[in-house]
């Protein structure tokens, strides 16, 4: 009986989590416009999706921003992690706390504060302000992925490289980066994923003229949900699912659970 209840509970949770998404995916293949009636299997909404220039523009914005933000935040975050690692204990603890705060802060607070910052400096919001915002919220996650790898490294590795004739720059390239590479790759993928599915912060840091997919869906949904959005959401869900699975697999490999 107890076992049955446990199973039932878990199944209930999973249903609540995934049935909406499942409905959405199924609906994206519905030939009719009505959500109440199944009118046969069709790819018509997917076709329309790729014909819509608004959606295609938004897709371009989303992907380029995710890529740029991932690359830039990975470079900055990795260097920051190395710098923080080299600090003495107390400044190091302080920096790590400062790094963690943005991650625990609600997105809406980050979004609004960035918007206020742009307004204060009279920066016109658009593509570049959104990119800057994405880089900002990505960096802490990169630092957090790289730091454990640095801590696992033999603390004399850097000195050994210098000892064998490396300049500090060569030591970074030939010894430190190879040692932290798995963490860097994980951080980059995490940054890409976070940027790809962000709505709240993007909403506050761009103008209505430059939309990414999530802000576009939001503004269109206010006028009533078109079935093309079902198709779009289904595609986004699948993409993010795949990316997250890869990230999780990597993280699991990096921190093997001791049984």
């Amino acid at each position: 009986m107890k076992k049955f209840l446990q199973r039932f509970y878990i199944i209930l949770i999973l249903l609540f989590l995934y049935v909406p998404i499942l409905v959405l995916i199924v609906q994206s293949f519905n030939a009719g416009k009505s959500r109440a009636k199944w009118e046969g299997l069709s790819f018509v909404w997917y076709e329309e999706l790729f014909k819509s220039s608004a959606i295609m523009d938004a897709l371009k914005v989303t992907v380029t921003i995710a890529l740029l933000a991932a690359v830039i935040s990975t470079v900055l975050g990795t260097l920051a992690a190395i710098g923080i690692y080299a600090m003495k204990k107390r400044p190091q603890a302080l920096m790590m706390t400062l790094t963690n705060i943005p991650m625990t802060m609600p997105d809406i607070v980050t979004g609004i504060s960035l918007m206020l910052l742009y307004l204060f400096f009279r920066v016109d919001r658009g593509y570049w302000t959104m990119l800057l915002a994405h880089i900002t919220f990505d960096i802490p996650y990169v630092i957090l992925s790289v730091m454990p790898k640095l801590k696992q490294m033999n603390k004399f590795s850097y000195e050994a490289a210098l000892d064998l004739g490396c300049t500090p720059g060569q030591a970074l390239r030939k010894v430190i980066l190879p040692a932290v590479k798995p963490g860097v790759v994980t951080g980059a993928m995490l940054a890409f994923t976070l940027s790809l599915d962000d709505f709240t912060i993007s909403y506050f840091t761009t103008s209505p003229l430059v939309q990414n997919l999530s802000t576009l869906i939001y503004s269109q949904a206010r006028k009533g949900i078109k079935p093309t959005l079902n198709a779009l959401s289904a595609l986004m869900f699948i993409t993010l699912l795949v990316l997250l699975l890869i990230v999780n697999r990597r993280t699991a490999d990096n921190h093997p659970v001791k049984s």
Partner: peptide, 28 residues
Amino acid sequence: PAYKRRVNTVFQKYALFPHLNVADNIAF
């Protein structure tokens, strides 16, 4: 700086480079 000195060091915990094999460590 250390990299310009004509001395070499054997460190307490060896500090071998784990991403290189034995020969590449020695050839570093």
